[in-house]
């Protein structure tokens, strides 16, 4: 009790002050984060939970006065038995894999072409931003017009020379899906190229120089040095595109509306039709949930795949 030296009194006080400061700081950071978290939970997570709930009901706003009857997993079963839904699911996967694979191959070539520093390449780069920023609805409409058989810039000659059918590429069941895929490739290849190019430019220059000084050919340099180092960027580009391609809506809706027949129907197009045009809420919710599940599985698969590739690249 007699210890009244300044130091021994001061010390606990300072410690307490510092503790209070840490608490204050923690509270401050929480206060900054809370609005965004609450907002996303309320406006995104809550509807998401509702969607899962609705998917177990026969719930149609235009039928039976919008009454809900519990049907268990019947909506999900219908997804598999309904031939339109099954076709939409298959189309979505075909679209995603074909579009992303082509975008990756072309994007990588484009990125390698643009790798060299210089004013010419900078100008090319600026122009390549145009397809990425243009409204997707407009992209769809441009190609719909260009491919029209009676007055389209391309469509007329393609039909005239017998390359496409007399009703054009978009109106034939066999060619509609590939054409829609190519439109997507047209629009998004530059984006993949821009991401890969940013990755290429951040590669350490000394390693590349060392490789060429060692007499490695261009192909060897690319396969053994550039590609392994570029893997994280490749992963980023692929995941980003897979996610977006799986959710494709605008281009298909504008060019073919899912037709002819079900030839270009995708999960999103079908879900929107069922949910917001026929107000078949229960079934549409099931479609939405399956889409979420597929995207989650695809992302997980990509993560595993790239991790394995990363390990293998490090071993060699």
């Amino acid at each position: 009790m007699a210890t009244t030296s300044v130091g021994s009194i001061d010390f606990p006080q300072r410690k307490a002050a510092r503790l209070r400061f840490q608490d204050r700081r923690r509270l401050f950071l929480i206060a900054l984060a809370v609005p965004a978290v609450v907002y996303v939970v309320l406006i995104a997570l809550w509807p998401l939970a509702q969607g899962i709930w609705y998917s177990f009901f026969d719930y149609n706003l235009l039928r039976g006065g919008g009454r809900r009857t519990f049907v268990g997993l019947a909506n999900y079963a219908e997804l598999w038995t309904d031939s339109t839904a099954r076709r939409a699911l298959i189309n979505t996967f075909v679209f995603t894999f074909a579009a992303v694979a082509l975008e990756f191959v072309f994007g990588l070539c484009l990125a390698l072409l643009l790798w060299r520093e210089g004013r010419f390449n900078r100008i090319c780069l600026a122009f390549l931003l145009i397809p990425v920023t243009i409204t997707p609805v407009v992209v769809g409409l441009i190609f719909r017009a260009l491919l029209a058989v009676d007055y389209g810039f391309f469509g007329y000659y393609l039909a005239e020379w017998g390359i496409s059918g007399p009703r054009g590429f978009l109106a034939s069941t066999s060619s509609a899906l590939p054409v829609v895929i190519l439109i997507d490739v047209w629009e998004w290849t530059p984006l993949v190229a821009l991401i890969l190019l940013a990755g290429l430019k951040s590669l350490p220059g000394d390693i590349l120089e060392a490789a060429s000084a060692d007499g490695a050919t261009a192909l060897q340099r690319f396969r053994l040095v550039v590609l392994p180092l570029l893997l994280p960027t490749v992963f980023l580009a692929l995941v980003l595109r897979v996610m977006d391609a799986f959710r494709v809506f605008d281009i298909i809706f504008v060019t073919t509306g899912g037709g002819p027949g079900d030839a270009t129907n995708s999960l999103m197009v079908y879900g929107v039709k069922q949910g917001l045009q026929f107000f078949n809420i229960g079934f549409a919710s099931a479609i939405g949930n399956v889409a979420i599940l597929c995207i989650a599985v695809l992302c997980a698969a990509f993560t595993l795949l790239i991790r394995r590739a990363d390990v293998r690249a490090n071993e060699t």
Binding site: V40, A44, L45, P47, Y54, M243, G275, I287, A291, I295
Partner: peptide, 16 residues
């Protein structure tokens, strides 16, 4: 949240 397809939230949000 960014990866969620909008169709899954849009229908309940529409009703809301």
């Amino acid at each position: 949240i960014r990866t969620v397809p909008i169709i899954a939230t849009l229908i309940p949000f529409y009703l809301m």
